[in-house]
Amino acid sequence: MAESILEVKDLRTYFYTEAGVVKAVNGVNFRLEKGQSLGVVGESGSGKSITALSIMGLIKPPGRVISGEIRLQGQDLLKKSRKELEKIRGNDIAMIFQDPMTSLNPVLRVGEQIAEAVVLHRKVNRKEGWNVALEMLKKVGIPEAEDRIRRFPHEMSGGMRQRVMIAIALSCNPKVLIADEPTTALDVTIQAQILDLIRLLQKDFETATIMITHDLGVVAEVCRNVMVMYAGQPVEYSDVTTVLEQPKHPYTWGLLSSLPKLNASGKQRLTPIDGMPPDLGNLPEGCAFAPRCPHKKPVCERQEPSGKWLSPGHFVRCHLYEA
């Protein structure tokens, strides 16, 4: 087995709201190897972003990571102090957010926004930080980088800004990059460019990547493994081919059912499945998918499926496969 960079075990992140406890992430497990890329898919609200933010240590009240382990090269991040985490964030693990229009600080020059992370983590002076920033801007393919580095975000297009975000994320050569729907907010032609860039840089920097997306096309293009999430839990996990071609979980079937056959450049959104995702503050007793599942059995409403490795590398959480 290759070297494991990041290992998440039984991660649970709950929000303690006035209306009750919202179990946004409710037992997530996965492993990420060096240079590997994992796709995370699932309907809106299934806990993808909260999983990512939990790993980053960016959960804010009323949310709290209540249990689990997040091991970065063996070290449990959940046991780290705030100071220690600050050293890791942006340095060992970096994250790209969904909306480049709002993710950059409007009142700071883009160069500064890249350089500050470099200055912080690489312990270099400001000038060197700016040099690195310039270099990164060139790497992410921003033309006239010498000029753009002094610009403010509002003077750049969405695609350019996402490149800046990528530059920020990769500026300290992180071991893990989490990209939370990095292309959703961009128009189609730009999406492809950005994805290509991520893929390219991922190879270059040998960064392990978690790619959160609604877009199975993206997964097909970029990722080796896929984790399908539903109601805060992984319901199916395997390599891309297996998930796309021989999915086992009824929810994954649903995600794929209305998809036209994927072609090479196919970029299809997940289509909605009938019914609504469950209320995370009031989960049903048995399988969370049961209310919408066309294949449910009596046991499904009584008892939660515990999950099973159908083959090494293919995990499914469904009573259909439990003895």
């Binding site: 985490l85 964030r89 970096a94 957010f97 500050e116 920020i168």
Partner: peptide, 20 residues
């Protein structure tokens, strides 16, 4: 989002608050 970005960079709380 941009404050979250700043935090994701590993900036200290005071830098995030005062600078960003």
């Amino acid at each position: 989002d941009y404050v979250r970005t700043a935090e994701a960079k590993g900036l200290s709380q005071s830098t995030v608050i005062l600078k960003h």
